[in-house]
Design a protein around this nucleic acid. Structure first.
Length: 414
RNA sequence: GUGAGUGUAGCUCAACGGGUAGAGCACUGGACUGUGGCUCCAGGUGUUGGGGGUUCGAGCCCCCUCACUCACCCCA
């Protein structure tokens, strides 16, 4: 019987795992500098949490969630995204009573039942961050700047920062109506998908990839022209702060977000070096969600980074060092093997990575293995060394070797 | 959910228009009785993803199925 990982789920191990660890480490360092603290929420929540926040008519909720009944018949769902659980945690634990802003980051697996393709999986990992309690655009700018620094620290170049504002509950209906007016006289020329979009989410027509639709939407109303006074001021202030902080952005009025809870600022970081799924990070403001979850009115903003997409970029962009053993202990004969094992453990106690040879292998094959592991040193122990209580060391990079007393070996490696 | 492409050794891939499978890498041992990288020699595995059909004969053709890949929808 042969088993495979489930469709759209993958195993991650050496050497890729070191890239993953690097990304997580950089995220933790950078986010901490901005005052974000790690938060770990369960990966399963009540189904309602996602339905209410993401939106009942979104694709995620309608057809992509891993939803089950537990043994007591509760409806539970493997989280398809990270924001809703954090908001639930924030409200449930009354974190709004703590000084604002409260800033959190998290990382872990998300689940969506989709057809896999390049950069898209059924289990995928995100690193996200959420900031609660600040409505000013200043924090929007800080978050974008934090993302810029994160990518910079990873050495990723050529990323595109796109920002937009989709308004608030006051101005968005006006814009939606203007769009409907605009497309209602052109609907016959739209692609079949956009004809559907016209009814359930006309904003989506704006990022259709069909040529005919691209042409038809020339001169369509721009969301930024329909923002109310407050939204407009928020957006303009954000843009000037981004300039101040040297975040290289592009305003993309056609950018649409897939989740219903977004308000005002939305943004996306994309790369040209990925496939069709080109977003490496995305997020925005969600000023109503905390209140919807039963908390006090609390503005908030957050984003999520797609781990697989970042690691894909890093794999092709630079060569990464993978850890190698410092010492390989090759032994001949049982007494030597036992002595080697003792020495190995003593060195390991000092935090040194030590590998040992195993029974049945010739010295030659042990050395070959040490070489293939790229071990820095080989220690050789046989009957002669046992008798003299000295072992031989060999440095594989230049072939130099020498002798050293058993008792001094612990100081030899520092 | 829709569409297209691909499944041959552990990995990367060969095998003219159907004649019952091969190379490189990797692995192990030896040449070099206790010294790696280079070279040479030797060693092994395939139910050709699975099932059915056509045929004297199928890795190759047909059907079904599974898996993977890419794209659409949608999205990190």
């Amino acid at each position: 019987m042969k088993y495979n990982a489930l469709k759209g789920m993958q195993d991650i191990f050496s050497p890729d795992i070191y890239i993953w660890q690097k990304v997580e480490e950089v995220a933790k360092d950078v986010f901490s500098a901005y005052g974000f603290q790690e938060l770990r929420a369960p990966i399963i929540e009540s189904t309602d949490i996602f339905v209410r926040s993401i939106g009942e008519t979104t694709d995620i909720v309608e057809k992509e969630m891993y939803t089950f009944s537990d043994k007591a018949g509760r409806h539970i769902t493997l989280r398809p995204e990270g924001t809703a659980p954090v908001v639930r945690c924030y409200v449930e634990n009354h974190l709004y009573n703590l000084p604002s802003p409260q800033k959190f980051f998290y990382s872990g697996p998300m689940f969506r039942y989709e057809r896999p393709q390049a950069g898209r999986f059924r289990q995928f990992f995100q690193i996200g961050a959420e900031a609660f309690g600040v409505g000013e655009p200043k924090i929007d700018a800080e978050i974008l700047s934090m993302l810029r620094l994160f990518f910079e620290r990873l050495g990723l170049k050529g990323l595109n920062f796109e920002v937009n504002s989709i308004g608030c509950e006051k101005c968005r209906p006006d814009y939606r109506n203007a769009l409907l007016d605009f497309f209602s006289v052109r609907i016959d020329g739209l692609c079949p998908d956009c004809k559907r979009r016209f009814d359930y989410n006309p904003l989506r027509i704006l990022d259709c990839k069909v040529d005919a639709c691209i042409k038809l939407r020339e001169g369509s109303p721009r969301v930024t022209d329909f923002l109310c006074g407050e939204c407009k001021e928020h957006f303009n202030t954000l843009l000037s702060l981004l300039k101040l902080l040297n975040v290289p952005y592009v305003v993309n009025p056609d950018m649409v977000r897939g989740l219903d809870y977004y308000t005002r600022t939305t943004f996306e970081v994309t790369s040209k070096d990925l496939g069709a799924q080109n977003a490496v990070a995305a997020g925005g403001r969600y000023d109503r969600l905390v209140e919807d979850f039963g908390g006090p009115p609390t503005p908030a903003i957050g984003f999520a980074i797609g781990m697989e997409r970042i690691t894909t970029l890093l794999k092709s962009s630079s060569n990464h060092k993978i850890p190698v053993p410092k010492v390989f202990i090759a032994t001949i004969g049982t007494p030597a093997e036992e002595e080697g094992l003792v020495i190995a453990d003593r060195l390991r106690d000092k935090g040194i990575w030590v590998e040992v040879g195993y029974a049945g292998n010739s010295l030659k094959s042990q050395l070959r293995r040490a070489d293939r592991l790229s071990s820095a040193y080989v220690l050789i122990i046989g009957d002669d060394e046992i008798n003299s209580e000295k072992l031989k060391w060999k440095k594989l990079s230049d072939g130099s070797q020498g002798e050293i007393a058993f008792t001094e070996v612990y100081d030899f490696f520092k």
